[in-house]
Design a protein around this nucleic acid. Structure first.
Lengths: 338, 338
DNA sequence: TAATTTTGAGTTATCGATAACACACATTTT
DNA sequence: AAAATGTGTGTTATCGATAACTCAAAATTA
């Protein structure tokens, strides 16, 4: 491996001079600078960022921890985060927890041992508290994305889950649905709780009561679990519409409905949170509450960089991004009203 | 930051002893080991992997460079790569070139300065040659994914582009299509060349001639470019079917067709390469040549790790993964045959 | 019992870079 | 002309960890 010492020797200067040329610090005569530059090019020198980080106590690496890399919401978010990070001169270390607390914990250890300068953290759920506290103990700045953790004070970028849920359910009620199932994420994820609240409020504001047997909980990534759906379909008075708490759950639900020979929206309407990214354009089908995924990443990263480079003692900020109701083909009035 | 020296002091031993406890090397009495362990836990010690890498000359980081993080083919591939890397005890540094040579070059520099142990490299195209040569110069092992680079000797994991293209076009010909457009990737990407070859062979084997005015080239990510499609649709004798060289191109094409009020497959049939990941299950629509994306990542990563840990002088291996024709709703016989 | 081996540590140098300080020589100021 | 500055560069210590070597005390062998 080529080091500054190799460069220094060939150029007939000290290592420190080479370092100064690389970093454009200190005073260097034009002649020396040129000579060193030439040798660096000739030898194809690339600085060792670990050695540099070790002494500078700064890695220039930021980490983005998402919960599902196959979910277009998070990949679009990742693009936003990447753009903001690169623009500010940081490298990005991606990590993917797969909605799995243990995997998340493993990545947090990796993040700590890499001594990244900051973390953009989409938690798996309330249990992530410990992992975030671990970051706090080690004084790594972080911004929490998408899901709020009750006991954590931090910069936050969230979607408006309650409002989005209300819009979706209102839409269904407006179409005439009275029996609307909610297939929700786990109750220890804040978005799931708020989506339930929105679901509930929409009912109450329309003078409808909420029937608990129509509300079930799954992990956001368990989109192949069919038992919950089974129970709903065999209900004595089955739902005419389903509100899936996120896009991946909707994927699983629609797939299962098809296997059972049920048509969407012919037999049952389906709505969900989150879009499907570019892919969605192929066949815009699902009625969704669309969240500005790219903005999540971009803003989150900006907050993070701001906290790292700016006044770290400033107050914590909380940004809530609105979601938009996109009415498409997966919803129609219930059969009996047609 | 807590270092082994802090631990050493508190435990009343030397730093070396702490290092031995961490790495389970050398001889340590059970009593000392326990004492050191205890202090490590109390102080919440996490080793500094940069310091370690610096002396060991090994980072335990592998890099995955993909060309489009919003493309489900690559995110599914990423999951495969991640699983294989974690299983073997490596961390993974993701990078996303956005089909952009300059961005790819930037990431290669980052990869080199991070001194990763190896790279799983999905090139943007033939121009990636320089970036790969840069890796070679610095003796970083790599495996090339998805796209072959003519002058590079390396382990390779490819799909069978020619065969897949032939299957797709045969399917269209079988339906009665005689005027099939190809909206291809850039000709300096090997998959685009091979897909053209497959397209051509399918025609010739069926006794049809290839009309060059029906073949256009775009960048794989230019899925919003409408000029190519415009030209095809205003052709004096327009195509009855379109073969899009990848999924993202198909996305753009279908979207544009809709804007123009054209139905798929009613007015025109569309097929493409690559699936849409889990998302696709919502509304399986496009007839595609599906490639085993997860396997691409998993196998590629295994080859890479094998080359790093095994005999690095072994011969280069080339794996070609088959693609599968999935006939769905985006194709039907041309209007005049119905 | 003396010689040898084993055990459980500690010391020092090193990885590749940079900060802080030092210093010779040239230039400017008084 | 002496003093004060400025310029360009080198020296040494340091970041946090580990390899290689050393060595005293305990255990084993002859």
């Amino acid at each position: 491996m080529i080091t500054i010492y190799d460069i220094a020797e060939k150029a007939g200067v000290s290592a420190m001079t080479v370092s100064r040329v690389i970093n454009q610090t200190g005073r260097i005569s034009e002649a020396t600078r040129k000579r060193v530059r030439k040798v660096m090019e000739d030898l194809n020198y690339i600085p060792n960022s670990m050695a540099r980080s070790l002494v500078l106590q700064k890695t220039n690496i930021l980490s983005l921890l998402i919960t599902d890399i196959t979910n277009p919401f998070y990949t679009t978010l990742a693009r936003g985060a990447e753009d903001a990070a690169l623009r500010a001169g940081y490298r990005l270390l991606f990590a993917n927890s797969d909605e799995d607390y243990a995997k998340e914990k493993g990545y947090v250890e990796m993040i700590l041992s890499t001594r990244v300068d900051g973390v953009l953290f989409a938690p798996t759920g309330d249990q992530s508290l410990e992992n975030l506290q671990q970051l706090q103990k080690h004084q790594i700045p972080f911004v929490v994305l998408d899901r709020e953790i009750p006991e954590i004070e931090a910069d936050l970028v969230l979607g408006d889950s309650k409002e989005g849920a209300r819009k979706l359910v209102d839409h269904l009620i407006g179409l005439g649905h009275r029996r609307i199932a909610l297939i929700n994420g786990s109750p220890d994820v804040s978005t799931a709780r708020l989506r339930y609240t929105g679901y509930r409020e929409a009912h109450l504001l329309s003078g409808l009561s909420v029937e608990d047997s129509l509300v079930v909980h799954l992990n956001y990534r368990d989109f192949h679990d069919e038992t919950a759906l089974d129970a709903l379909l065999h209900h004595e008075n089955p739902p005419t519409a389903i509100f899936a708490a996120n896009n991946m759950l909707a994927v699983g639900i629609i797939q299962s409905l098809r296997h059972r020979g049920l048509q969407v929206p012919g037999d049952i309407s389906v709505v969900c949170f989150d879009d499907f990214g570019p892919v969605d354009a192929i066949n815009p089908f699902l009625t969704v509450a669309s969240q500005p995924a790219y903005q999540f990443g971009l803003l989150g990263m900006q907050l993070l960089i701001d906290r790292i480079e700016g006044d770290s003692a400033q107050e914590h900020r909380k940004m809530i991004l609105p979601s938009e109701l996109l009415i498409r083909a997966s919803t129609q009035p219930p059969k009996e009203n047609r």
